[in-house]
Design a protein around this nucleic acid. Sequence first.
DNA 1: TTCCGACAGTGGGGTCGCAAT
DNA 2: ATTGCGACCCCACTATCGGAA
Length: 338
Amino acid sequence: MSDPLRLLSASERDRLRPVTPGRGLEPMLATLTHDRFSDEHWLYERKFDGERCLARCVEGRVELLSRNGRSAASAYPEVVDALRAQAPPDCVLDGEVVAFDRGRTSFARLQPRIHLASADRARRSGVPVYYYVFDVQSIDGADVTGLPLRRRKALLRALLTWRDPLRLTAHRNSAGEAYFRYACEHGWEGLIAKRADAPYAPGRSSDWLKFKCEQGQEMVIGGWTEPQGTRSGLGALLLGYYTDQGLRYAGKVGTGFDTGTLQALARELRDLSSSTSPFTDITPHPGPGTHWARPELVAEIAFTEWTRDGRLRHPRYKGLRRDKSARDVVREGPDPDR
DNA sequence: TTCCGACAGTGGGGTCGCAAT
DNA sequence: ATTGCGACCCCACTATCGGAA
């Protein structure tokens, strides 16, 4: 559509202000919550596991910017080409660039492309990407961030022809909790809940909420690292689980503790200190700040997923499991070698 | 007085790109 | 030619402080 702003009422159009020139482009960010709800004043979108990108179309030119304002054009040239080919009115779009692995958005699959500085290498990578657009900041010189989200989505739908690799992000208007269960059952990263009548507010906002699907399991503590800076007690715990070949290293966890917990854990681990690594596979590099421990303590760890290398992604400490025997700790969930 | 939001600081896995070796 | 490291991507979480409620 050549003029999507015609979708607005006269009074809505009257209230639009021109885009402030030279103002930095900043995306609106969601706040993590563990309180999941259904509410008719909110809508729900799939949370994508990719790279957040703003696209700015100005006089036929297209810029693609990462969350920190770095250009992502050479990493995703096909997205830039697709936008340029449509020659939309000047606009700023907000969305996520994603890659798929067996039907699920996969950050690991996207990762080799994220930092590519050569558009040729990006095109030859063999990793197809899609740009899921879910919001719009400005159209044809008019700042639309003050409009309610539903109105912005109506404008966005009419702004482009939705053809791969450009995709309009779908949303649901109700049943947030049921949708969240569906999301986790299907291996999604989670949902984003958005207040349907809220304006677009750059920066962290509580009008957008993250409902994240979480995994958790017990892990054996096989060592620790020295604290840095103002940190007390320890830096991170070295984690593992048992296989037929012994204790397998699964990465570190360095967040989730308060100061008291850090000091208590450090005291307890010093008594379990050992000069040899308890891990039987490739061990973390035993740098100057690394200590081994006899593998007796069991910790509950929450995380988002296993990485390709068998490490925990986004791990955080939840507490000790004194009721569990270290020997019984194995990797849960789907077979890692499949 | 209590609560909330913003910010700094500490920690995680993984990849690219470049300078040092 | 190889290696190490900083800079980004994705983050979670705690501690602190000032202003709002």
